[in-house]
């Protein structure tokens, strides 16, 4: 029997109230959230950038703290979106039943999934804005073309938000998320060129990392922040875009199977 749950998503502007609801909750609780958005990257940059950087010197022709700042914009945005669509989305689905309340109104799962994904993109955008501000105050950003990082961070957030929703859709509990963090997010975080250039790892690993979205985002964000020429932007952005679209389709199918029974 063909599974009708995996039919293509049907998107509309009905996703906006879902996004708006999440945004309003965030505004209410934005104090601790913003401290995290500014504080964590700041301490990373100070400790690793200056501390470790004084031993390392230059990496890839850049002072280590600059190299690191360009990577941390990406990894923080990834973590923000991932957390949002794992723990927070799971809470809205299972604990608070926010989604059930929405589905009794004229909203369906298609709207909810798209709203959540756009919200994850927005949270990544907020995170990237905070780090760009910190980095530019520390004098680590080269020129106004760095603003181009913001739409890229939004795309990154949507991509990782959608991927996290796939995990949420099949998760029996919060504990299950550790698998995804340990087996997917952490290796990507460590190997995608955030802390050191990709060419310092074995070729097999390089090929694997290039199949994953974070590396390609870093490859676009680094030249945007350092004023270097952009190369192969289209190809690099295509990877997270495809991951994001495929993950939206898969997450929606799995959620329909889980919730519309």
């Amino acid at each position: 029997m063909p599974d009708g749950n995996f039919r293509l998503p049907r998107f509309s502007s009905r996703c906006l109230p879902v996004w708006q609801r999440n945004a309003q909750v965030w505004i209410k609780l934005s104090g601790p959230s913003l401290v995290g958005n500014f504080g964590e990257p700041l301490f990373y940059l100070l400790a690793l950038g200056y501390g470790l950087g004084s031993f390392i010197g230059e990496v890839d022709g850049l002072p280590y703290i600059v190299f690191l700042a360009t990577g941390i914009v990406c990894s923080s945005a990834m973590n923000t979106a991932t957390f949002e669509c794992l723990y927070s989305a799971y809470t809205r689905m299972k604990v608070q039943e926010t989604w059930a309340a929405m589905m009794a109104a004229p909203l369906n799962l298609d709207d909810i999934v798209l709203g959540e994904v756009l919200w994850a993109g927005t949270k990544s955008l907020i995170s990237a804005t905070a780090i760009l501000l910190v980095a530019s105050l520390l004098g680590l950003v080269h020129g106004w073309q760095a603003v181009g990082v913001l739409p890229v961070a939004f795309l990154l957030g949507c991509c990782f938000g959608a991927m996290a929703l796939v995990v949420t859709a099949i998760s029996p509990s919060y504990d299950f998320f550790l698998y995804y963090f340990t087996l997917v997010i952490t290796p990507m975080f460590l190997l995608s060129g955030v802390f050191f250039p990709l060419d310092s790892v074995p070729e097999m690993v390089q090929v694997g990392v290039q199949l994953l979205p974070l590396y390609h985002i870093v490859e676009v964000v680094r030249p945007l922040m350092t004023g270097r020429p952009l190369e192969g932007v289209f190809g690099h952005l295509l990877v997270p875009l495809l991951y994001g679209l495929a993950a939206i389709w898969l997450a929606l199918g799995l959620l329909r199977r889980r919730l519309l029974i």
Binding site: P17, E97, L107
Partner: peptide, 24 residues
């Protein structure tokens, strides 16, 4: 619904406003 699935982060009035937005 059987279990109250109100939005715990919102006030009484905000719950009504948010829900109304779901209906446009």
């Amino acid at each position: 619904p059987q279990g109250d699935n109100l939005d715990p982060d919102f006030s009484v009035a905000q719950n009504l406003r948010t829900y109304a937005r779901y209906f446009g």
